[in-house]
Structure formats: C-alpha cells, structure tokens
Amino acid sequence: MRLLKVIGKRFSRNRLSVIGAVTISCLIVIALFAPYISPYDPTAIDVHNVLSPPGKAHPFGTDELGRDVLSRVIWGSRVSLKVGFVAVGIAILIGIIIGAIAGFYGGKVDAVLMRFVDIMLAFPTFFLILAVIAILEPSIFTIMVVIGVTGWMDVARLVRAEFLTLKERDFVVAAKAMGASDLRLIFRHVLPNALSPVFVAATFGVAGAILIESGLSFLGLGVQPPNPSWGNILTAGKDNIEVAWWLSLYPGIAILITVLSYNLVGEGLRDALDPRLWDMEV
C-alpha cells in the first residue's frame, strides 16, 4: 500500500493535525477506561460536599448534589464518543446510498433525489432535530439517530459529484462492457474511488455531532440526568452561574479540546487526500 504510506507521510507533515490525532487517541483511551480512571462514581451523591470549589479531593469541584465533576467529565467522554461515531456512521450510510444512486443513474432519479437534498437543507437543522426529539423520548439513542438522519446531505452531494465524474472513466466503462452488474459497478469499481472526500467530511461530521449533542443535552433534550454528559453538566453550570464557575468551565474545555482535535485531523486529512496538492511535493 504505497498510497497509504504517501497519505500518512503527508498527514504527519502537518504538526497540528498530528497533535489532534494524538489527543483523539488519548480521549478514546479515557472513554474506554473511564471506570478505572475516574476517582469517584460519577453518580454518587455527597450531601456534605455540595458545590465545593476545585481542591485536592475534587480537582474540578463538585456539583449541586455533591457529585465529583472530574469523574462526570471523564464519563461524559463516553457519550460524546458514542454520539460522534454512531451519528456520523448513520449520516455516511444514508449519504453514500443517496449520493451513489443519484450520481450513478443520473437523469430523473438524480433530479428528484437532489431536490430532496435541497428540501432537507432548507430546514434549520437544529429546528428539525428539536422537533423530532420533542416527539420521541429524549435519550442518547434518539439523538444519535436524529443527528445522523438530519446530517447526511453534504455526504450525499460529495458522493454524487464523485460518481458523476468517475462513472465516465475508462475503467468503469470497461467493467460495464464486460457485463458487470450495476451493484458491482457501484460498490466494487466506483465507490472505493469516491471515498476520500467522505472520510474528510466524516471527521468534520464527528466534530459537528459532538457540538450538537452537547447543545441538546444542555437544553435538557439529550442525555438525561443522572447520566453525565458534557452538555448536561453545563446545564448545572447555568443553574448555579452565580456561585459555581467550575461547573461551567471544565466540561466546556473538554468539548472545545475534543471538537478542535477532530477539526484539526479533518483539515490534515483533507490536505493529505487531495491529489491536486500532491504535485507540489518534490
């Protein structure tokens, strides 16, 4: 796999993207080993230690029920990881299917599907998500699905554009002439060559999904207490804004670092995967 090596080399040349990738790896380890890392049970209530400021026993302080904020932030990383990956997985699946069909068949199928994309793009996404969650029960499962179902349009457009140009290429035409079925043409010949912009979009998508999840949980429409998520710790921060700044500060930093890391990796991937930039290296 010489190609992978080239991409890896190009990616590692961007220092910020490498830092982002390392940070994401650390965050994944933290999420996986949360039970062993976190100093306290994230849901353990301690009425003697309500809203105590950061100190030796509780580095990030405690919340209005005396729960350890550091432990809640550590456990909250599990939520953002799950939501990020599952929601983006759903979005990519839908986006690839719709984009591939539209780009491969073209004509009326394409026109109808792309109008559907336009319609979906016209809704302020946050309104649509809120409306669906208002109808279904808010839970981590609901928001993963809803963020995925309302976030596939960009992927569909990217995949369609790739398909439009790829399907005219000689290797696809040759495969078709040899009698390959449509499914085989789409999945075996065209799709693997159309994936690099999808990877980039997916990385940025994880960042976006984590931001949306934290916003929804902040509004009380995402992960429900007592389960910790970065967004719902911030709700407590807002309720105690006059007395407990630490409730507002630390979960937000966690969100910022996580989202920033995915954005940096996305940027690095985009440059590394863009063949037009390859000529520039000597």
């Binding site: 911030l234 804004i241 700044w245 507002s248 937000g252 910022l256 989202v259």
Partner: peptide, 17 residues
C-alpha cells in the same frame, strides 16, 4: 479553528460569568 470548535452556549455562559 478555536472559533469553529467552541460551543457557543458555553462561550455565552463564560461571558455571562
């Protein structure tokens, strides 16, 4: 990049504080 990655409601909370 920081602007892209900051949850606006968090920024709002910090500025309110």
């Amino acid at each position: 990049f920081i602007g892209f990655s900051t949850p606006t409601f968090w920024l709002a909370l910090l500025l309110m504080i």
